[in-house]
């Protein structure tokens, strides 16, 4: 049975900069994954619904506007509410280091800051997908 990792790359909130998200999407594509890209201005509800329909293994959230709180934890909460416990949730963007432990405590599996080597994200996903 062929197994292919499916990753939803999403930009929650109002910030309009998705170059970083596109670079990551492209790198995951080149690593042999199927990347579902949804564009800007997604609500947490849209992201969770899309992840369910697309049967994604991973949700990758990107935020550069400082709105990672409350948006990232809200995605985690909505997944729980829908009874979904097998999707890896990771985040990236401009996120102050002191926020990272708080995001993780809120259920975000990992956070990647600016300058993270792309293959580090790829390897992290490969090692940690939950199914």
């Amino acid at each position: 049975m062929e197994r292919k990792i499916r990753v939803l790359v999403a930009k929650p909130g109002l910030d309009g900069h998705d170059r970083g998200a596109k670079v990551v999407a492209r790198a995951l594509r080149d690593a042999g994954m199927e990347v579902i890209y949804t564009g800007l201005h997604q609500t947490p509800e849209m992201i969770v619904e899309t992840a369910i329909q697309e049967d994604a293994h991973v949700i990758g959230l990107s935020a550069l506007s400082g709105a990672h709180f409350p948006l990232f934890p809200e995605v985690v909460r909505l997944l729980k509410e829908r009874g979904v416990d097998d999707i890896l949730v990771i985040g990236g963007g401009i996120i102050p280091p002191e926020d990272i432990p708080k995001l993780k405590a809120a259920g975000v599996d990992e956070v990647f800051g600016p300058g993270t080597p792309l293959n580090e994200i790829v390897e992290y996903i490969r090692r940690n997908v939950k199914r």
Binding site: K4, E34, Y37, G39, M46, T50
Partner: peptide, 14 residues
């Protein structure tokens, strides 16, 4: 080459 894909049709279907 890699078996990967960028599935972007949803961008137009928000």
């Amino acid at each position: 080459f890699t078996g990967g894909a960028l599935l972007g049709d949803r961008v137009r279907m928000n």
